[in-house]
């Protein structure tokens, strides 16, 4: 893996007129909620235009899930991702399915707990132990989506830590704000440790 500076990665997302993000995995991993929180953080607290869409199967649990967040300084016509700048994959299946939609200079984040890529589709590929951190450090496996959001915030800067936390407070189910915020913190910590 090539060595990247955090600064360089963050610069990729600065002053970009359109950023396309895809969060993908399985139903039940909370990716749609994560995409909504991301949209709130960017749309309400970063003052950018945002569109969030999702694709899911007819069943409520299981099956492949993807959520797209398109962020723009200007107007968003086509609301879905075309070539993504940032791809989060939480299952092997999602990686296989969506790695080809990544831009060559795009960033891949994968959950080392579920995904063990033999080859990396782009040079800026980063594995984090997302679900294990949620289970063992935060104490609740279902907060993996929030750990992922913390990572996205710290790694790319497309939403500030402050904006993200505000959005989490607004959107997290009542009574779960604290544990979700802790999960975000742990995600941020994972990035800080990686780029010490």
């Amino acid at each position: 893996m090539a060595d990247f500076k955090l600064e360089d990665i963050r610069n990729l997302f600065k002053n970009k007129s359109r950023i396309e993000v895809r969060l993908s995995g399985a139903g039940g991993q909370g990716l749609i909620l994560a995409s909504v929180i991301m949209a709130e953080a960017v749309g309400l607290f970063e003052g950018k235009n945002v569109a969030q869409t999702q694709a899911y199967g007819p069943e409520a649990r299981g099956g492949a899930t993807r959520a797209d967040v398109v962020i723009s300084e200007g107007e968003i016509y086509y609301p879905k991702a075309t070539k993504v700048d940032l791809l989060l994959v939480m299952t092997e299946e999602a990686l296989t399915k969506y790695k080809h939609v990544l831009k060559p200079e795009g960033v891949l984040i994968y959950d080392e707990f579920y995904v063990h890529p033999k080859t990396l589709p782009v040079s800026r590929s980063f594995g984090f132990d997302i679900t294990r951190t949620a289970r063992d450090v935060v104490g609740k496996m279902v907060t993996a989506n929030m750990v992922a959001l913390g990572i996205i915030s710290a790694l790319t800067g497309i939403m500030s830590e402050e904006a993200l936390k505000k959005a989490v407070e607004r959107k997290a189910p009542e009574g779960t704000e604290e544990i979700n915020l802790k999960a975000v913190e742990e995600g941020i910590k994972l990035v800080k440790e990686r780029f010490k």
């Binding site: 309400l44 607290f45 970063e46 950018k48 235009n49 300084e73 107007e75 968003i76």
Partner: peptide, 11 residues
């Protein structure tokens, strides 16, 4: 109170 950024570039 929410410190929402109301003005954005897009209409």
């Amino acid at each position: 109170a929410m410190k929402i950024k109301l003005e954005i570039k897009a209409k």
